[in-house]
Amino acid sequence: MNTLVDFITHTKGLEYLIAIAFLISFIIFWQMLHRQGVRFWVTILPIVALVLVFGILGLRINSQRPSEGVAVGESPFLTTSVLAEWYGPASFDHSSHPDHQGDCGLCHHYSQGRIPSCSECHGKPFDAAELKMPGLTHAYHLRCIGCHMENQAGPTNCVECHTQAEIPPLSAVHPLTGVTNCLSCHGENGIPGVTRVPADHLQATNGVCQLCHKPRVEAKDFAGLPHTLAGREGCLMCHGAGIAGASKVLENHTGRTNETCTLCHKPL
């Protein structure tokens, strides 16, 4: 028992049981003092029932004694990333800091003459057994951003150092108005003909998608519909083959189904 709240839970449970046992025995005691024929049994029967019920309850409370839990060993906890990598690597050029030439210790701290590389000390990503030593990424970030913020000079935003490489913008596809769940179309069981999220993105949720994939278009950038949607449920019934003067869907739209059309094309 490690915590007061566990202790109270346990002792109070037991106290209540004893108090109730007392109450029941008090009634029996009382009845023995005034033995009263029929009434005695009228009172005794509910008592027997109560004893049974509380006996069962008592067993339950005692079986709920808190476990000792999982031992937290000395082995380091793993840092398993849950977000896809958003940024490309940043490259640091010593010549971009001409003012600090010769003052190597400013960044290469605790070095006393010798100039070690960062990874010599900050080799591991993160080690719960060695908390004082920031991991390599963190060491870089702390050193760069910390100094830039301190002096209010130099980049502090992610994209000023990192490239946000090869992220397909949503502009190629559709705006986001009215869209609540990316995966309902782009997920594994999404709409046929729509781009699937890559395999390493399958864990992603909506909120995370939009971190990288930014909409660059709005609905007005797309051809509007010159008619209402009332009574017109299947776009492709007319537009698929260009029936009755309806404009034919574009070549690069093949495979699209009704569900996706109105994401971009709204009635004018």
């Binding site: 109270i8 839970t9 346990h10 109070k12 449970g13 309850l57 409370i61 709920q64």
Partner: peptide, 8 residues
């Protein structure tokens, strides 16, 4: 009363 208890 019957399923889960929080005597504290």
């Amino acid at each position: 009363m019957f399923v889960s208890f929080g005597p504290a």
